[in-house]
Every structure is written in structure tokens, then in C-alpha cells.
Design a protein around this nucleic acid. Structure first.
Lengths: 230, 230
DNA sequence: CGACGCTTTGACTATACTCAACCCGTGTGG
DNA sequence: CCACACGGGTTGAGTATAGTCAAAGCGTCG
């Protein structure tokens, strides 16, 4: 399905995308006609390792989880993506299958651009490559950081670290909202759901947090929490 | 110290580097004068998070380990680099400090190019960006793959997986050589040295491998080993 | 209202870590 | 040339952390 190319929606979509948003309007308008659009329902597989599409997807609305499966069938969530983020990019650039699954956590819509068109766009606007490099560098650093503390820190530290990342640096509040099911969070943190639950309870017993409801947690002593993770 | 710009050494150095080796000779010769060179002794820190150099390094000879430290002081080795590989690239592209340490495992020499010069080179030859993107994509995939099986597979699977990666796909042999101290290997695999030792012993008891000497291992039953890791 | 999936709690267990001692090989200095 | 020190590697004993399995509680959505 072709995107409806009216500026108020599609261009806004592109403007949300870090790798495009430095481009001037007139260039964006050249890219718009190359986009297709597709909708997915909650629970749908947006990408799986067996379909050999070589399209680049841009998440326009909704929320997805990106994960790998290990040889014993366990799922490791690598990241969650919000509107404006790109997916499928690894396969495009390396030409190899990277065994990544992407599943819709809610109904959503993506924009797609074919590998061929995207390559044309890049060669016309090399500044896009630099943005991609930046994005990949940051993700690589995130992945390596995570690997480091998954293998060297205990669960409690990881949980606290995660809670602290939810603090909004601008709006000073001590209430954080976990933007996903606890089950998915536990996979993301590489622990079992039971262990996550128990650790949150322990933090509550220690009067460091208070669980307001399933998704909302009040951080009662941010300094103390920060000192736990150094 | 300036590199001695004779073609037989420096150009060979560049030709070893994936991000440059697609360039034609005449372009390589333009890049050569931008390179400086530096030597390090075994054990030296080639990069640490506190020096703010923004140079790109190319390993010309020798062997390094790249690692992060966690808040409790434990070291997680991320990768080992061999001649021709680049390092320091994350800091260049993202402008942020990425807390990565690089230590020389033997005496070595690097070529360096300043961020400024490198940016000039990239904008002149955009094809280099695509090579960088490819390299980063592969490393990202490696990191995420590793994260996945570190957190979902048990130690034995990880050890066997590693041994199998040492098999040379071209020269069919069942003897593999671990290219590092076991202590560093255990950090790379995110396990303790004791656990690594015990697991190798167990594999030996099961007649799956035979440890010829400290670094050399004979794989006695590759099919069986492969079936362990699916 | 019922069913399903998520979450929590409990009991038990296993895996891998820690600490300590000892062994071994290598390189250095007397 | 030998003694020794040092770092790496192995082995053993004990332990702790987090996983598994099972059951029950809770919430949400048909």
C-alpha cells in the first residue's frame, strides 16, 4: 500500500527519524514517493529471520520488541522501538541473515523503503550515512554495555540501573512507569520473571521503592538507589 | 612519529583494512601522508576512557584485548583485535565517551589518523562510510548474539560454541589453538577461570576433546560437539 | 462471567562463583 | 646452572544466587 503523501503525516514521519531529520524539506519531498506503508496487528511478526525482505522499515506508530532466540528456544529481548526508529537495517547493509525477530506489542504502522531505493538515497545524500554510523555506534555501545553488566553485575544492580534509566532527566519526578509487561522487561534484563518480581519486592521491603500499581513505581530514595549501582 | 611512507609497508597496512581496501591505489596514496604511527609495549594501555584523543587507530601489528569494566571492577572482554582492525571509532562518530579500554597483549604498532583528517577522507570517498556501516552492523550483530547466549545458554554450550568457532573452515583439521591466555578467554566468555577449566576437563572426561597442551585442543567428535549447541 | 495470560509467592535445586591451596612453566637473578 | 618468584592454571570444598516448577492470585478482555 502506497503511503498517502500528504506533508502533514508522512513528512512528519520522516522528520521523526534521526537519520533523515537533518535533511532539508526539498530533499525529504524527494524521498516521500519512495515510501510504502504497511499495518500490523498486536502480536504480529513484523520481521522474522526467515522472510528475506530487504526493505528498510521505519516505525510510524506503535511499539515493538526486537529479540533473538537461543538454541534452547529462550527469547532475549534486545530492545524496544518507538515511532521514528528504523528496523531491518542490519540485513540491508550486511547482506546476511541476522536471526532477529520483531513483534508488534500493539497495532502499528510502518513505512518501508526498498533496499535499492535506499541505496540511491544514500549515495545522493551521503550525510545520511554519517547519521547511520552514529546510530549504529550508539547501539553497539549499548549492546556492549549491557553484555558487560549482565555478565558482571548481579540482578539487583541491573534492576536498579534499569529503574534509574526511566527517570526523566527534564521533568524531575520520582515516579517511573515501566513501558512494557514485566515479563518482557525480565527478558530484556536477562532474568526470569520470578526473579524480577522478587527483587522488586525486596527493594520495596528495603523502603527504596514503592510499587503503586503493576506498571508504576515510586522511587523513594534515589540517592541510595544510585549508590547501589555506583 | 610520522609513518615512513613507503608503499611496501604502509600501503599494505591500509590494504589490510576492510574499510579502505576497496579503494584504488591512487586514493590510498592520498591517504598515506595523513597517517602517524605509534608503538606500544605488551601490557600498555592503547586506549582508555580517560584520554580524550579523537584519533582513529589502525592496528598494524600485534594483538590487543578490548574490554569494559563494570561498577564492581570486573573486566568484560568484548573482543580481540588482529592487524588491520580499527579501534577508537565509536568515540569518533558519536562524540561521547564510551568507557572502553584497549590493552596490548604483545608489543605492537598502530597507525593513527586524526578525526579531522578522517572526516575529510570520508567526505571525499563516501564508499568508505558504507564499509564502516557494514563493519559496525556485523559487530552489533556479534554483540547481540553474544548477549543472547550469555544470558540464555549454560557455560558448557558457550565453551563448545567457542571451540567450534576456532575450526578453520578451509583447512580441515580437528586441532584448534586458543589464541589467548585462558584467563582472558574466560573473561571473553563471561565465566570464571575455574569454571572454564572445569568445563574443559569435563569435555575431556566425556571424550569429546583432548587438551594437547595449554593452548592446543583436539576436537575428538565434532558432530557430537555441534549437536550440543544445536 | 469466564478464560486466559501475566504476576506473585513458595519450595527446591542447580549452576556457577568464591576462596584457598597447590601445581606448573617461564623468566630472572644470584 | 639452579633457586626462586610470579603469574597462570587446576583442583577442591563450600556457598550463594538465580533458575525451575508448581500453584495461586490478579486483571483484562472477550
Amino acid at each position: 500500500m502506497k503511503c498517502n503523501h500528504d506533508l502533514s503525516t508522512d513528512k512528519n514521519c520522516l522528520l521523526q527519524v534521526p537519520i533523515f531529520n537533518h535533511l532539508e524539506n526539498k530533499y525529504l519531498e524527494e524521498i516521500l514517493p519512495l515510501l510504502n506503508s504497511k499495518k500490523f496487528k498486536k502480536g504480529d511478526e513484523v520481521v522474522n529471520p526467515f522472510d528475506n525482505t530487504s526493505d528498510l522499515y521505519i516505525l510510524r506508530s506503535g511499539y515493538v520488541k526486537v529479540f533473538k532466540l537461543s538454541e534452547n528456544g529462550k527469547e532475549q529481548i534486545l530492545r524496544f522501538l518507538t515511532p521514528g526508529k528504523v528496523l531491518g537495517e542490519l540485513n540491508i547493509f550486511t547482506n546476511t541473515n541476522h536471526d532477529v525477530y520483531v513483534v508488534a506489542l500493539e497495532d502499528l504502522e510502518v513505512c518501508m523503503i526498498s533496499r535499492k531505493d535506499f541505496e540511491k538515497v544514500i549515495s545522493k545524500y551521503p550525510s545520511i550515512s554519517l547519521e547511520i554510523i552514529k546510530e549504529l555506534s550508539n547501539r553497539l555501545n549499548d549492546a556492549e554495555e549491557k553484555l558487560t553488566y549482565v555478565s558482571t553485575s548481579n540482578v539487583k544492580v541491573r534492576v536498579v540501573k534499569y529503574l534509574l534509566t526511566l527517570l526523566n532527566p527534564i521533568i524531575k519526578t520520582d515516579k517511573v512507569v515501566i513501558p512494557m509487561k514485566k515479563k518482557d522487561l525480565s527478558s530484556y534484563l536477562s532474568i526470569s520473571p520470578e526473579t524480577l518480581s522478587r527483587n522488586l519486592k525486596q527493594l520495596e521491603d528495603e523502603k527504596l521503592i514503592k510499587q503503586i500499581n503493576n506498571r508504576t513505581i515510586k522511587l523513594l530514595n534515589i540517592n541510595e538507589l544510585e549508590s547501589l549501582v555506583e
